[in-house]
Computed example of a mutant assay.
Amino acid sequence: MGAILADIALVVLPVFGVVAMGFVSAKTRLISDKASDGLAEYVFGLAVPILIFKTLSESRLPEAQPWGYWIAYFTGAFAVFGIAMVLAIKVFHRSRTEAVVHGFSAGQANTVFLGVPLILKAYGEEGAVPLFLLIAIHLPVMLVAATVLVEGSAGLSLATARKLFRTLALNPILLGIYAGGIAKLLGVQAAGVPKQILDLISASASPCALISLGLALNRYGMSGDLKATAIISALKLIVHPALVLLLTLLLPMPPVWAGVAVLFAAMPCGINAYLLAQRYGAGVQTSASAVSLSTALGLVTIAFWLYILGVG
């Protein structure tokens, strides 16, 4: 037991330790808000897309898609999405739009800034393909669902549909996935100096993402309705991965893919929930608090799920 816990600590503590360094750096003004924005743009716009491109172009993709993997993850995601919406309306008496923000917060995982570094550390290269394939589908599916739910009552306009399509089509993460998939199909791989450049940038993705997350946590802080925040965090950190774990035991998929699905579900609330709340002007404080609280609690809950999965 002691050896297992020590192994799990070696996976979790370095990751959250770097996040803590980012948080302390922002708190002590060692790094400014301006630098925080720039680092986040670098991670999201360049480092992680190149890491994804490099991984997909060099990896061996599965000959057949394990559909159980997709069903398990998204069944859990939409279950907690729905539960959070119902609780927001029935228990907290929130508007439809704010209820959607609650649901999106519970179902949208922090994939780029925490999921990529932590899952790659837990599963290595073997977990990279299922991780990045899920990232490719995760954001578009959840964002489209949230937008339709918010806009649907008034009729989804053509302008909104165009804006959503443009947002997804030009998303740097998705562009990295498209480019990596095309390179893999064409059998194109970087070599020589170009490969060294890609290697250097992709190596910076994980540490920069973690520092950026720490800086963001200092900015968002904790405010708003803590009861709603706690429920959203519980749905994200406990209920979502528990549902996915149950379904991975019932549906066929490779063991590593099952582990990636559970860990992906166990990630804290994603910053995209806060951005969605800002866009619609509803649930901003609650979504920001959910990001902060779920990330802080994630140190313990992710260690628990790693133990359940036998990773370490």
Score class of each variant (00 low, 15 high):
residue 38 G to W: 03
residue 42 Y to R: 12
residue 156 L to V: 15
residue 247 L to A: 09
residue 238 I to C: 10
residue 235 L to F: 12
residue 44 F to H: 12
residue 188 V to R: 08
residue 144 V to P: 01
residue 205 A to M: 02
residue 251 L to G: 07
residue 128 A to S: 04
residue 236 K to Q: 07
residue 201 I to H: 09
residue 167 T to K: 12
residue 130 P to W: 12
residue 207 P to C: 04
residue 83 I to V: 07
residue 247 L to R: 02
residue 296 A to F: 13
residue 129 V to F: 11
residue 278 Q to G: 11
residue 7 D to K: 15
residue 233 S to H: 13
residue 133 L to F: 12
residue 197 I to H: 09
residue 139 L to Y: 08
residue 197 I to R: 05
residue 301 T to Y: 02
residue 87 L to H: 10
residue 100 V to S: 03
residue 118 L to K: 00
residue 261 A to M: 01
residue 26 A to C: 00
residue 267 M to G: 03
residue 252 P to V: 02
residue 65 Q to G: 13
residue 190 A to D: 11
residue 311 V to T: 08
residue 151 E to I: 03
residue 175 L to C: 13
residue 14 P to L: 03
residue 230 A to R: 07
residue 277 A to R: 02
residue 69 Y to E: 12
residue 60 R to W: 08
residue 32 S to V: 08
residue 85 M to K: 03
residue 276 L to G: 02
residue 255 P to K: 15
residue 89 I to W: 14
residue 101 V to M: 04
residue 215 L to H: 07
residue 191 A to S: 15
residue 6 A to I: 09
residue 64 A to N: 12
residue 190 A to L: 15
residue 247 L to M: 07
residue 306 L to P: 01
residue 47 A to M: 01
residue 221 G to M: 04
residue 294 S to C: 10
residue 199 D to E: 10
residue 87 L to T: 14
residue 150 V to A: 11
residue 268 P to N: 06
residue 134 L to E: 04
residue 176 G to K: 04
residue 38 G to P: 06
residue 312 G to N: 11
residue 209 A to Q: 03
residue 44 F to R: 01
residue 95 S to F: 08
residue 290 A to G: 07
residue 283 G to H: 06
residue 92 F to E: 08
residue 207 P to R: 10
residue 275 L to F: 05
residue 111 T to Q: 05
residue 77 A to K: 09
residue 121 K to T: 15
residue 50 I to T: 09
residue 247 L to S: 09
residue 270 G to N: 07
residue 242 A to P: 12
residue 119 I to Y: 11
residue 39 L to V: 07
residue 234 A to H: 07
residue 153 S to H: 13
residue 177 I to H: 10
residue 252 P to E: 09
residue 112 V to C: 03
residue 173 I to Q: 02
residue 15 V to Q: 04
residue 65 Q to E: 14
residue 191 A to C: 15
residue 195 K to D: 13
residue 72 A to C: 11
residue 73 Y to N: 07
residue 191 A to I: 12
residue 124 G to Q: 09
residue 300 V to F: 14
residue 235 L to H: 10
residue 192 G to W: 14
residue 49 P to S: 05
residue 45 G to A: 06
residue 155 G to Y: 10
residue 76 G to H: 07
residue 180 G to D: 00
residue 198 L to H: 11
residue 56 L to F: 00
residue 167 T to E: 14
residue 7 D to R: 11
residue 249 L to K: 08
residue 129 V to Q: 05
residue 302 I to H: 01
residue 287 S to G: 04
residue 285 Q to C: 11
residue 219 R to Q: 06
residue 3 A to P: 12
residue 137 I to L: 08
residue 262 V to M: 08
residue 2 G to P: 13
residue 269 C to Y: 04
residue 237 L to W: 03
residue 268 P to M: 09
residue 223 S to A: 15
residue 84 A to I: 00
residue 7 D to S: 14
residue 135 I to W: 00
residue 116 V to W: 06
residue 96 R to D: 11
residue 99 A to Y: 07
residue 117 P to C: 07
residue 117 P to K: 02
residue 2 G to A: 15
residue 68 G to S: 14
residue 55 T to D: 01
residue 7 D to V: 09
residue 26 A to T: 01
residue 36 S to A: 15
residue 32 S to F: 01
residue 232 I to L: 10
residue 167 T to G: 15
residue 82 G to V: 04
residue 69 Y to K: 09
residue 84 A to S: 13
residue 75 T to A: 08
